[in-house]
Design a protein around this nucleic acid. Structure first.
Length: 440
RNA sequence: GUGGCUGUAGCUCAGUUGGUUAGAGCGUCGGAUUGUGAUUCCGAAGGUCGGGGGUUCGAGACCCCUCAGCCACCCCA
């Protein structure tokens, strides 16, 4: 016998997990579409040269690669951004710009596993490419805002925004511009490891002096209402072209988000967020949950100057972000937001005996025609057993129709949550069920 | 990739200084005069003690290797 098992970092999803997962994905899809983002898909496998050398050395190490039967060097995609770059370079002419797309798909990274970190996981990206407009910057935040709201976090999250130009402007004035990657990476850890360690890291990896590190930390510590922070930033980046431009854009974006009707409490200018990725050049976004700030960002992204420079001479600026599906799911699990349901069908129809199979198939189909999801039990077991099954699965309503009811053209509609039931004409069953599902 | 912790039934865990036939709760399945679950009672099935090797008269307990999970670093979703 072969032992049934899955590879390290790869997972199976049971119905309960998968229902929650699909619900999240459908919500994300709905939000993306509501802004006009169109779906695309790309192959899981790409020529190795497309994927290799795109991220850091780190991503190269994590890349799953092999030689296929035709002798081609191929790799499995490790994110959705590189495939998008290739895709955009290849189809920019026929797509037209700006191009807004979403892409929900699995990616693979051969890195060491940890809680919430797997070798196969799903990304839910949305990007707008071919424009540097403030509108696209603002919309990115609005999409994130809608995502979290629709998923059920209402007012319990904060979108932190920042602008790489402001960070780089400061580094310019401090004469640390050529070390920006190291400095930003260090700043990104501020919340996690504290100012002393960040200062030490900056001195070590970026060769910053104690004074420079101090200035950076002082900058990163800026706090308060958005307007106030903006004011304080002005003198700090004065004289730096990128710094001033970044600050201006930040101001525009914040007021745009407010103009869209988003509560100002949801969006916070936080100069300490940097995002690890080198390729961000403009606005950057992170999202944390009020109840679980420690799990980190559940939706993040930013603007990049030139997405597809590896693949085309055409300049394709863009902005995008991604929903951290797995992280969000584990957060929701922790917060008890994942219902204990193992069936997608709200209605359960027990099978009394084989003689009634015909009428019950008909009844089930009529209910489906009325827009309900109905499971007809497949074996004529004892009613108690069948109801037990329905209860375990999380069906909400049972429609019980035995010989007596069928004879009278009736059925019993039973609310499985409280045990109450009502006997109604078969034609009225759907309406009765709707009443229960509506919660009254 | 580096370092640390862990691995006993489907799940959560007990298993005394190594000592005979490895236990519980939950879950699963079956039953309690065959039409009512979530809240009863009874019963049953289910374990290569992650896998392999070693030490020992004897290993679930000790040692080595390996696989997997968790945590930290790294990086990131």
């Amino acid at each position: 016998m072969i032992q049934p098992r899955t590879l390290k970092g790869f997972r199976d999803y049971l119905p309960q997990a998968m229902l929650a997962r699909e619900h999240l994905i459908e919500t994300a899809r709905g939000v993306y579409r509501s802004y006009g983002f169109a779906p695309i898909d790309t192959p899981a496998l790409e020529y190795l040269e497309i994927l290799a050398g795109k991220g850091s050395d780190e991503t190269d190490k994590q890349l799953y690669k092999f030689t296929d039967a035709g002798g081609r060097e191929v790799g499995m995609r490790f994110d959705l951004t590189v495939p998008l770059a290739r895709f955009a370079a290849q189809y920019a002419q026929q797509l037209g710009l700006p191009f807004k797309r979403y892409h929900i798909a699995s990616v693979w990274r051969g890195e060491n596993t940890q809680r919430g970190r797997y070798r196969e996981f799903m990304q839910c990206d949305f990007d707008t490419i071919g424009t540097e407009s403030q509108a696209s910057d603002i919309e990115t935040a609005l999409v994130i805002h809608d995502l979290l709201t629709k998923i059920g976090f209402a007012d319990a999250f904060t979108i932190q925004v920042n602008h790489r130009g402001v960070l780089n402007g400061l580094l310019e004035t401090l004469d640390l511009a050529d070390q920006s990657t190291h400095v930003l990476r260090a700043i990104d850890k501020l919340a996690k490891i504290g100012p002393e360690k960040v200062a030490a890291e900056m001195q070590e990896t970026a060769g910053a002096s104690i004074e420079q590190a101090g200035e950076v930390l002082q900058f990163a510590a800026l706090e308060g209402p958005n307007e106030q922070v903006l004011e304080q930033l002005k003198p700090m980046v004065a004289g730096s072209e990128v710094g001033e431009a970044g600050l201006a854009r930040l101001e525009e974006v914040l007021s745009g988000i407010a103009a869209a009707g988003v509560s100002p409490e949801r969006v916070k200018l936080d100069v300490s967020i940097a995002r690890g990725l080198d390729y961000y050049t403009g606005m950057i976004y992170e999202t944390t949950l009020a109840q679980l700030p420690d799990i980190g960002s559940v939706a993040s992204g930013g603007r990049y100057d030139n997405l597809a420079q590896m693949f085309t001479k055409q300049k394709l600026p863009g902005i995008g972000a991604s929903l951290g599906l797995d992280r969000l799911l584990s957060a929701m699990e922790e917060l008890g937001m994942v219902p204990e349901v193992r069936t997608p069908a709200e209605v359960f129809v027990p099978l009394f005996n084989e003689e009634l199979l015909g009428p019950l198939l008909k009844l089930s189909n009529d209910l489906r025609s009325a827009g309900l999801r109905v499971e007809l039990y497949n074996e004529p077991k004892k009613l108690g057993k069948q109801l037990q099954y329905a209860d375990k699965r999380g069906h909400r309503v049972a429609v019980i129709a035995g010989p007596d009811e069928i004879e009278a053209g009736e059925c019993q509609v039973k609310n499985l949550a409280d045990g109450s039931s009502a006997t109604v004409k078969l034609e009225a069953a759907a309406g009765e069920i709707e009443k229960i599902l509506a919660g009254k």
